[in-house]
Design a binder for these strands. Structure first.
Lengths: 195, 195
DNA sequence: CAAATGACAAAAATAAATATTTGTCATTTG
DNA sequence: CAAATGACAAATATTTATTTTTGTCATTTG
């Protein structure tokens, strides 16, 4: 074989096989077959099946956080950006969950297996929110409170709409309206001189 | 046998057996044994195993909603009562979860099997909150918005702290602080003239 | 000699054989 | 005759036997 196998090739193949067979049914032999290599080869690139799955999970989480980062740099008032950021987060999650529920469930189970990756991911999301909150404080738009606390609170107060463990509840017909009411409370709770 | 078997006796025995064997391992034969009756007898009182489990689940949910109802009638400002009510809800859940995690997980799985019982329970909780919110509006303490929407929003915005699907996250050392920050946002978001 | 292979043991998962549980109902008991 | 029983078939679950999977490493390949 001319070219040596790359990590990216392995991750792509693993994702394909996971999509086809599901989290429970894919073995490293299946992934090796998809790549036409022996399974021993995969162990030269990833030290265990768990490590391989971790790498796939991290790539998946990345696909959530990257598009959100672009909102942080957009134009607009801080409260508008908080709303856009939350709506994008919720849209990404809810779209993935409704368009391909099994795949969504599988990737979340995969992510659950890698608690550290998730914790890092959540921290990254909250620090994106914190950037927006900081802008709001600097512009005199938000009250000058602890920025990180506020960012976490905004994230946690909207957990019902983006936490994968609650995905079952996203099919409620009122979910959009419920978000709007929660967001209004947040807005009145953080913006100065709004009344 | 002198006295005929009552539903309460059966529910008590079922609970005991569930505690001992767990949700997965208890059969109606086990419950019958605990009562020294034949399992056929239980089918004269409950039309199926599912119905019996539903009755146990409803009793469990009742133990959550009853102590909360007493907060609604307490003295104090509406916002104080909202805080007391939320803290009691969270305290009941988190205490049950930490003191006996397996039993808590079992009862939640049991409750999950009975979606209707849960929906009714949530509606009851939200209407308790709505009573407090209504008092706040009538006293001129809260803004005069849609009361039921506000009550739902308060409930959903605090889901992270009381939704059983998120129980794993309650062991975070910052959980109490996180609730306080979320509650402050809610407070500034619903109380009039606070700034 | 870097990269890949494939044979191997231990651990884990699956399938087949066996046993228990659910739910019914004709019969028994007090 | 109201209440409970226990024998029974069909559906579930458990155990045991068998196969697959994971991870290693001495050997092969280009």
């Amino acid at each position: 074989m001319a070219e040596p196998l790359t990590k990216k090739q392995i991750l792509d193949a693993t994702e394909q096989v996971l999509r086809k067979f599901g989290l429970e049914k894919t073995s490293v032999v299946d992934v090796a077959k998809a790549l036409n290599v022996s399974h021993g080869t995969l162990y030269r690139h990833f030290k265990s099946k768990a490590t391989l799955k971790e790498a796939v999970a991290e790539r998946w989480l990345h696909e959530v956080s990257v598009p959100l980062a672009s909102i942080v740099d957009k134009e607009g008032s801080a409260i508008e950006k908080v709303r856009m950021w939350l709506e994008k987060l919720i849209h990404i999650k809810q779209t993935k969950a409704s368009e391909d529920p099994e795949l969504f469930a599988m990737y979340n189970a995969l992510a659950e297996e890698n608690v550290e990756s998730i914790e890092k991911h959540i921290k990254e999301l909250i620090s994106q929110l914190a950037e927006i909150v900081e802008e709001g404080v600097n512009a005199g738009e938000f009250q000058n409170d602890n920025i990180n606390e506020k960012a976490s609170a905004i994230f946690f107060a909207t957990a019902r709409f983006h936490h994968p463990a609650l995905a079952k509840e996203w099919t409620s017909p009122n979910i959009k309206k419920e978000f709007n009411v929660v967001f209004d409370i947040i807005k009145f709770g953080i913006v100065k001189n709004i009344k």
